[in-house]
Structure formats: C-alpha cells, structure tokens
Nucleic acid binder design. Structure first.
Lengths: 256, 256
DNA sequence: CGTTTGATTGACCCCACTCAAACGTGGTGG
DNA sequence: CCACCACGTTTGAGTGGGGTCAATCAAACG
C-alpha cells in the first residue's frame, strides 16, 4: 500500500507531461473534448513545482490567477469565520480540481493548504476563459465541472446539517473510498492524508468523537484502523448506516 | 410594510418586460455587459407564469432545461438524504438566480419549491451556452456567478459546521437584511416568506430553538418579532454576535 | 534517549433536541 | 358574524448526543 505516495514521487522527474497524455485528463475534463481541443488546453496549462506539507497554494483574498488540478498528494481548502475559527470545506485528491471560488471578483475566498508533498497543474483563468470562447466543448466542460461542485457542496450541507456523528463518519469513509475507486486505486484500503483534527473539523465534530467512532466501527468489525491507514471490511454496513439501502436493512445490530 | 408583496403582484400584469428594462438586471448580471449584449440575452429569456405556494419549479433528477431568476416572491431549494429527511440549501429572493446545480449532466440535483406566489424568468441552458460562445462578456458573467455560488455555499458550510445556534440565527437575520438592501428594500424591517420549520431546517436547528432564540433576541431588545414580520432594532448587536467586529466588543451583556 | 506532535480514552457536563401541551391566527362553513 | 378547526408558533420540562477537559499513550524526530 505505498501506492498513494511512492509512485507520485517518481513522476516529479517527468513533470512536463501534456494533458493529452496525463492519466488524469479524463478525470479533470471527463467528456466531449477531442484530441485537437486537448492540445490547445495543454498549451495553457502550467506545471508547478511541488508544494511541501502545510504550504499554501493560495490564501483567502489572494488574487486568483488560476484554477488547479491535483496531480499527486492532496490539498485541503478552508474558510475562516469572523471570530477566528476555520471550517474545512474540502479535501482534494489527485485528479480533482480546486480554485473555482476564485471566479468571483478574481480573488480567492478560501485558503488551500497542502496536506502532504503535493504537485498541481495550474490552469491560468485568463487563458482558460479565452480558450473557452473558441472551444465550445471546453466551455461545456467547465459548466459541468461547476455544476458538479455545486452538487457536491449541497451534499456536504446535508451532511453537516442533518447527519449524526455516526452517519458523518460513515459518509466520509464512503466518500474517500469512492474517490479512490475513481482514481483506480483500492477502494477498501487506503491511507488518509489528513490528521484526525482535520477530519473532525471537516465533519463538524470534535477530534475525540472521530477517534471514538473509528474505534467503535473497528470494534463492530466494520473497519480496521491503524493510525491513518484504513481498511474497510464491511462496505455494505457503512452504506446501511448512511441509509443507502434502506430496503434491505437486515436487522444488523449496530444502529440504535 | 406591504412593500415586499404588493408591488410584485402588480408586475404580474406586465410580465413581458425585457432584461434591459428589468430593474433586476444588474442583480442577475452585475457587470460588463453593454446594451447590445443585453438585447441578445433578452431574446433567449422566457417568462414563466407565476408559481403558487408549494409549487415545484423543478425536482431532483428532472432534466435541467434552464436556470432561473426570481422576479418576485421567493423559492427554497433542498436536497434529500438517502434515509428520507431534507436539507434546505438555499432561499432565493427576487433578483437571485437558482438552478446552477443542473449544469452537471443536465439534470437537477436538488428540488426548488415556491415559498409563496412567485414569478421567475427561465433562461434556457442550451441557448445560454450558445450565447456565451459568441458573447465573452456573458460568459465572464456566468463564471462570476458560479464563483459567487461556490463562495456562498462555503459560508453556509462554515455556519452549519462551526456556529452556535445563537450565531446561526444572527447570521441568518443579517443575511436576509443584507439581501433586502441589495434589492433596495428596507434592511431593518421585512417579512420572512418561510415558516419557522424551514428556517430551522436550513440552519440545522430544531423549530423550538429558532422560536426560543427569536424570543431571546426580542427580550434583549435586538429585534422585534411579530409572527413572520421582523424588525431589527440593534443591527450592530447582531454583527457583534457573529463576530463581525471583534475589536469594538464593548462588554455587551448577551454573550455568555 | 528526551521531546514533540497526534491519537486515544475516560469523566463530566452543557447545548440543543425531544416530547408534550398550550396558544394564537387564519381560514372555512354554518 | 361567530364557532370551529387546522396549522404554525410558542413555551416548558426533561434528556441525551456530542463537546470539553484532562490524562495517557504511541509514533516520529532530533
């Protein structure tokens, strides 16, 4: 299971790879772009040198030059409240985009911090916007991406607003698992790149609650926890907890 | 104070008004479009006949033909969880847009319901997308709008994840007040179009908590509540509660 | 090794939820 | 016009889920 870190480290050597060749391209821009369009997009994408853990990719109120695609590593984005505390609004895994918040007024409204050594592609907004004018397929892509962003944030609102701590943790694990699958990595065994503190913050819980529920799920045989390494033993059970299969609720002994 | 309802009722008579003339146009599309561009946009906007209270504008998984601008009345949008309960993700006042969730896969991922008699403009997505190809200023506008959407949802995540019930209520009242101001209506006196139940749902609270806090703020002389009519007496105090002016925290007796 | 940082576990407690009942208001029909 | 009903809202009492505080433990690091 060193897959999540090692292989990306070697890619640092050959960073200058085009979007067309990038194994993440279909993740960044899933549909409808032909080879020619991809080459044009490729020409505007900038490679950035890797970020170290805790480096800022951008800060709130920074002027927004670009949107970013994570190539390797991971990033958290967070907003700050007037009275000082922070809310993590997203974790961004390889192949995922971030920085859409900068579309308004060309200034970022949240802060992005690397959770580990991380490499990103930067797509300059000015060039992207120009390119969209001449490439309808790219523009369509951008619309899709933004619609997806809105939809995902809605799911997060649902989680924060309506779910119990148990459901939040289960939802979180399923989300990571699903996204690992989208990257063609193992869906039942992975290493979380963020500390408990960040998970708790993200889910609107206390660190201790996260810790306790991990332990509880481990005791119930649903997962195996070893520090940040997670193995999902009973994926089905997690889905039942979040209510994904209400129908076949076969009287499993967990929910109160 | 019949301002919030009466004047809109009369506009039903002259619904066929162009975007250029519409007094909400700068709210829908705030910047950078000249008269000619506006005329082109105008030509694709459809007027809809008014929705009655509780009518659905669209439902989750409906195919998304259009985005919508509220002309009069108000709309709530909500998402449903697998286990059945709902989370209201937004209230949409006159001049505000909704339906951006439909950009992904051309299917809506939330449900929009009129809170009262409501009239909307529908902007067909296919036509809007085509128009964006030929009008860079309109495309830029759309990007701004989507960036704003993302930013606002981040603020909601912060609210649901980190704020106490007191802060949530204060934030909610300030939000409505500010948006009333953007419509050039009174910022300190307005009628809420949604029941307590919806406010509670939106804020991740129980109805009783909303009711109690309204009473508490009324007792403290911060607001005056009469059913759904709200008067803000001490706007400054509300801002202090959410922490907007931490500096001049002048030992006001409310916060514990 | 000692130090530091992150994670866990236990004891206690409080904020906000739940349950329950009363209240007011608006709408409806007699 | 009034009596009645239904619904939204308010208010009170009691409780529990998850937070806080504090101590311990484990791993990483110099």
């Amino acid at each position: 299971m060193p897959d999540t870190n090692k292989p990306q480290l070697v890619t640092f050597d050959r960073l200058k790879v085009s979007c067309g060749q990038c194994n993440l391209n279909e993740l960044c821009f899933p549909h409808g772009m032909d080879h020619e369009d991809m080459c044009k997009l490729d020409s505007v994408v900038e490679q950035r040198k890797p970020l170290q853990k805790n480096d800022h990719l951008y800060r709130e109120s920074d002027s927004a030059h670009a949107i970013y695609a994570v190539r390797s590593g991971s990033v958290k984005t967070l907003v700050e409240s007037p009275n000082g505390d922070e809310q993590i609004v997203g974790f961004h895994l390889p192949g995922e985009l971030l920085g859409l918040d900068g579309f308004m007024d060309s200034a970022h409204t949240c802060t992005a911090i690397a959770l580990e050594t991380t490499s990103v592609c930067a797509i300059p907004m000015a060039k992207l916007e120009n390119l969209c004018n001449s490439l309808p397929s790219l523009q369509h892509q951008m619309w899709r991406i933004m619609g997806k962003e809105v939809t995902e944030e809605h799911k997060m609102l649902l989680m924060l607003g309506k779910m119990s701590a148990e459901e939040k943790i289960a939802t979180f694990l399923l989300s990571i698992s699903r996204r690992m699958g989208e990257r063609h990595w193992k869906t039942t065994e992975f290493v979380l790149s963020m500390p408990r503190q960040d998970i708790a913050n993200y889910l609107g819980l206390a660190v201790e609650t996260v810790s306790r529920l991990f332990a509880q799920y481990q005791d119930a045989g649903i997962i195996k926890v070893d520090r940040r390494r997670i193995r999902i033993l009973l994926l089905q059970r997690l889905k039942e907890i979040v209510g994904e299969n209400d129908e076949l609720k076969t009287k499993n002994g967990l929910e109160t």
